[in-house]
Design a protein around this nucleic acid. Structure first.
Length: 310
DNA sequence: CGTCCAGGTCTAC
DNA sequence: GGTAGACCTGGACGC
């Protein structure tokens, strides 16, 4: 029987949170082990909990400033419950203060709508998961990304407690250690990652051996690690180029870079009514947002993913 | 059937 | 520093 917990829906600066728009904020919520239940307007995920088995959770709105978190499996002890809730808050990005961004957006007629709680992109539990998934989006169709990530989770992810782990959904995302020790053929024959297999394996080995601390990159403050330095560290990773580095940065809450790729460029052209724009032109349009430029660009592109509430 | 290309990156000039 | 060409895979096309 699932246990239920409530969490307050508010940003770190007290700003409002639109949960449904958060759930629909990005395609990665449709990559295993996460899934969107569109009819139930819920986010499902399998989250790791330090020291114990992963748990399957489901988040739904439950009032204007409250969300309900259902947790499958035996009730957790106090310490584990608090760890799991911290993971949920992390995934929903409730620890981020978007009020400085809202202050700027309010002055932009094209983006004033965001101040009612948009802009919180669903995040993965770990930076490692973020990087792996991003590499799996490069140079392929979205269906291939889903297949690759699904195979990784189904094959190497630890099953959640109290869930029938059929397919990729009842498992946590694989740990670096699990991905490092599997035979290399797995990436070619099961994941069918093609040339990305070598990148994924190399990344997993570096993290598993302790040589590379990806999670530290996610924790570092802007003062400790400025955006340019974080970008350089990401670009140094195997299989991570300009697109992937920008994408990971946005997912880590470093919103300065714009994600410029084969989806965002034509989408921007369509929404601005015309011909393809030069990257430099797009960058200039969002320059006024400073450290939030990439977030502003993403929201500009994805406004119609959710019906405006007002 | 062949060609193209999708939420790019790397290497070699 | 800027730019071709190769690269796994598998759907979507044109012939």
């Amino acid at each position: 029987m699932p246990s239920r917990l409530e969490i307050e829906l508010a940003g770190a600066g007290g700003e409002p949170v639109d949960l449904w728009r958060t759930i629909r904020s990005h395609g990665v919520v449709d990559l295993p082990p996460m899934r969107v239940d569109a009819e139930g307007r819920a986010l499902e995920a399998t989250l790791p909990v330090e020291g114990v088995r992963p748990r399957r959770i489901r988040v739904v709105e439950d009032g204007p400033r409250t969300a309900l978190v259902e947790i499958t499996g035996r009730p957790l002890g106090k310490r584990d419950k608090s760890r799991l809730l911290a993971a949920v808050r992390h995934v929903l990005r409730l620890d981020d203060d978007l009020s400085p961004f809202y202050a700027r957006a309010a002055k932009d007629p094209d983006l004033a709508w965001v101040v009612h709680g948009a802009g919180r992109l669903v995040r993965s539990p770990t930076v490692f998961e973020e990087v792996v998934k991003t590499i799996c989006t490069t140079n392929c169709a979205w269906s291939a990304t889903q297949r690759m990530v699904g195979a990784l989770v189904a094959g190497l992810g630890e099953p959640a407690e109290g869930v029938r782990a059929d397919g990729p959904y009842g498992r946590a995302f694989p740990t670096p250690a699990a991905m490092a020790k599997v035979e290399p053929d797995f990436f070619r024959d099961v994941v069918r990652a093609g040339y990305r297999g070598a990148y994924l394996r190399s990344l997993a080995e570096s993290v598993a051996s302790g040589e590379l601390d990806l999670e530290a990159l996610g924790r570092a403050s802007r003062e400790e690690l400025p955006d340019e330095e974080l970008a350089a560290a990401l670009l140094a990773l195997p299989g991570v180029g300009p697109y992937a580095a920008s994408h990971v940065m946005i997912m880590l809450g470093r919103y300065s870079p714009l994600i410029l790729d084969s989806w965002t460029r034509p989408t921007y052209a369509r929404l601005t009514g015309g011909r393809p724009k030069k990257d430099a032109t797009i960058v200039r349009r969002f320059r006024r947002y400073g450290p939030y430029a990439g977030l502003a660009f993403w929201l500009f592109l994805t406004r119609d993913w959710v019906e405006d509430p007002r």
